[in-house]
Nucleic acid binder design. Sequence first.
RNA 1: GAGCCGUUAGCUCAGCAGGCAGAGCAUCUGACUUUUAAUCAGAGGGUCACAGGUUCGAUUCCUGUACGGCUCACCA
Length: 490
Amino acid sequence: MDESNELMRQRKEKLSEIRKAGINPYPHKFTPTHTTAVIRKDFDKVDETPDETHRVTVAGRIMTKRDHGKSSFANLQDSKGQIQIYVRRDGVGAEPYLIYRRFDIGDIIGVSGVVFRTRTGELTILVDEVELLSKSIRPLPEKWHGLQDKQTRYRQRYADLIMNPDVKEVFIKRTQIVRAIREMLDAQNFIEVETPVLQPIYGGASARPFTTYHNTLDQQFYLRIANELYLKRLIVGGFDRVYEFSRDFRNEGMDRDHNPEFTMLELYQAYADYLDIMELTENLIAKTVEKLHGTTQINYQEKTIDFTPPWQRMTMIESIQKHADIDPESFSKHELYTTVVDAGIKLEGDESRGEIIAELFDVFVESKLDQPTIIYDYPIEVSPFAKKKPDNPDFVERFEFFMCGMEVGNAFSELNDPIDQRRRFMEQASKLEKGDEEAFMVDEDYLRALEYGMPPTGGLGIGIDRLTMLLTDQYSIRDVILFPQMRPES
RNA sequence: GAGCCGUUAGCUCAGCAGGCAGAGCAUCUGACUUUUAAUCAGAGGGUCACAGGUUCGAUUCCUGUACGGCUCACCA
C-alpha cells in the first residue's frame, strides 16, 4: 500500500516546496459560485472577448495540463463534468504562476476568472486567481486510455469514478431508479420502514446465511437473507402497505448476477393478492423505465426490451410446455426426474415432484425469457410462504418475473393461515436436519404474529441491483455496486 | 467448487523458438502567452505477480501459490 515510486517521490517533494512557499496545500474551505455544468448552460452564448460580467469561481481536479511557457491550459473536472481553464502569467501574477506550474494532474484547485471562448471555440475560464485545495501525491492513470483494469477499477472505485465518467452516470441512474420507485410507492400510501439486519432466526428465502455474534447477549445472530417476515409482522400490526429497500446477505457464490450483499425492495400490501401485485409490478417498473429513459423500450446488451404493460404471463407449467417441449403434468415423477438428470443436472434423489418441476423450469426456461415475462403458479414445495391455489393444493399463488434471462422479482399471495404456515415451517426444519443448508428454522414469533391474524396480503421482492443492470445496460452486477465484494489484496 | 485465459514502468500495452527489458501517454530538464492526445529537444523510471524447478543462463519453459476475468455449477 505504501509503495513509493519516483512519481510519488516527486510529488511529495513538490508538496514540501509548496509548504515552504507558505502555502497550505490542504486548506479548509473554498466556495465555488458555479459548477462546470452551470457554466456550460449559463455561458453558452459567450464569445471570444472576455467580459467581467462572466465571472465565475469553480473548484475541481486537474485532469490534463498543457503548459506553454508563460501560459497554460488545463482541464478542470468537478462533479458535473469538465471545463477548460487558461492560466497566464499576466493574468495571475508571476509568483502564483510559478506555483501553479508546480501543480500536478490530480491536484484539486479552485480558480476565479471570466468565461470566454478560445479561437477554437472551446468554452474556457480565463483565470486571474488560483488556489490549491488539495495536493495529490499519487499519479492518476493516463488521460487517453484511462483506467481499464477491472481489478483496479473495482478495488479502487474512487480512481474508476475519477477517470470514467460513464461509471458515475450508472450510479447516478441507480439512485434515480430507487428514488422513482420510492416516490411511486409513497404516492400509493406505502410506508417505508426499517427492520433488523441482525436476526436471531433467518428466513423469508432459501439461502445460506452469514453468521455473526453478539458479545453482550452471548448469542449467534444471522445477517438477514430477506426481510420478508418482519415486514409481514408489520402488516399484522396494522400497517397496510409497507416497503423497505433491504440490504440482504447470502453466503453463496459470486458471479455476473450475484454479489454476497445486494439490495432488494420488498413490499407488502394488505387485502391484495398476487394478481394485484402483478399489475403493481408492471406499472412500477414500466414507469421507472419511462422516468429514466423517456420510453418503455430500452436496449440491454444489444437486445431491445419492451417494458410496456401488460407483460407476457405464463404459468410455470405452460412455460415448460412451451420452452422444454414436454408436458410435466403427464409425466410421472420418475420421468420428470430422468429428464432433469439427462439434462446434466445433479439431483439428490429425494426431491419432491414440485422441486423437480421448478428445476425443469430453471434448466429449460429461465435463460430463454428475454422480454419481461411473468411466470406464475409455483409448486408448493419451493414456496413455503405462499398461499395455495384454491383449486389445486400442489401449487401456490406465486409469480416471478424475468427479463434478459434473469430473475428480477418474486411475489405471492402471502400465506396467512398460521396452521398451514407451521406445517410448512416443520417441513423446512426437517430439511434442515437432513442437511439442506438452504432450509430454515421455525420462526415461532412469526407464527405467533400470524396467529393474531394477518389480513390477506400480496407481497413482492425486486432485485434492485439486477433491475439497475437492465436499465443501465451493464453486463455485470459488479458494475452497479460501488464496492463489489472482492478477495482482499494479498 | 471446476475449466479456460490473464498478471511486464504510474496508466494502456508490445516483446522474449531461453542470451543486457520495449513503446505511447504520464514524469523530470529546457524552449514556447489561444492549446486541447499541444509541439520541439533531451533525461530518468522495472523484484517482468509470488515461490520453487529445469538450464551455463529464466521475464520467456515446467510446477505450485495468490489475485483477477470469462464460462459452467449453486443461488436472487
